[in-house]
Nucleic acid binder design. Structure first.
Lengths: 130, 130
DNA sequence: AAGTATATACGAAAGTCTTCGTAAAGGCAA
DNA sequence: TTGCCTTTACGAAGACTTTCGTATATACTT
């Protein structure tokens, strides 16, 4: 899967990627339905089609023909995409400091005690793993 | 300062905000110079001017005349902006889970031991503060 | 075969972001 | 005053995103 760069994943592109990550390879219709379920405003079928065609042109998706329809698959893993987005945010808004982002993310919203404990465990594992 | 919504802070807008957060109230020339210092590609003076005018129109900046020039100030605090960006990222890419974002941010880049300890302390404070 | 439903392809419009050229206004110097 | 330098204002171009209408192809049904 590796290191494909999503140059500037747009909002809609991200939504479509999310759907494909969850549903696995899908045709346009399925994606369009999921898109409309998630959000209030309707999105036309051809709009979704066009978006996915563009993503295919950009190399974000592959497709294969199954009968008359195309089945699309993502070429980026969710983790890779998340990492790139986090990197970008750290760079653009947190002076390159992951620590600052983490503190901001934790500080300004309510976390449950079990969430906090989960992070503690995670920190322990990180240090062990060295 | 409070809760002004930056609707979709663009890359350049963010850069300009960063500069204003660091330098404090500034005129266009100063901001333009800082912009060009930070990055390789030149940005024309009128480009910077236009961007700041638009940000003023959008309500992101105020300005006051000092002699012939305008002095611009931000209307959003850095913390507020960071929070909005983090919220958006959590929503768009981490299924609304701050925990997931934090783990991803910590897991996939190297953190120093003192960073990790700082986070532990921070977690302790969070729990105490309840 | 004809008709219907579903898919794809294409092109274009509207909106936004970034860029800059050019013109106009204000102040300073000779 | 005349001319130069700095600043602002305006407008428009080019790129990109999202949207959809329309046309064309492909299959299924009767």
């Amino acid at each position: 899967m590796a290191d494909l760069k999503l140059p500037r994943p747009t909002d809609k592109e991200l939504e479509i990627l999310q759907i494909l990550w969850r549903q696995g390879p899908s045709n346009v219709r399925t994606v369009n339905e999921a898109l409309n379920l998630a959000k209030p405003g309707e999105v036309g079928y051809t709009t979704t089609l066009k978006l996915m065609q563009i993503m295919h042109d950009k190399g974000l998706l592959t497709r294969s023909k199954s009968g008359k329809t195309h089945i699309y698959k993502t070429l980026v893993s969710e983790g890779d995409a998340q990492n790139q987005l986090v990197d970008k945010l750290i760079d653009k808004a947190f002076q390159g400091s992951a620590l600052k982002l983490v503190m901001q993310a934790l500080g300004n919203r309510k976390s449950t005690a079990s969430d906090l404990n989960e992070i503690r465990d995670f920190l322990d594992q990180l240090e062990k793993g060295k």
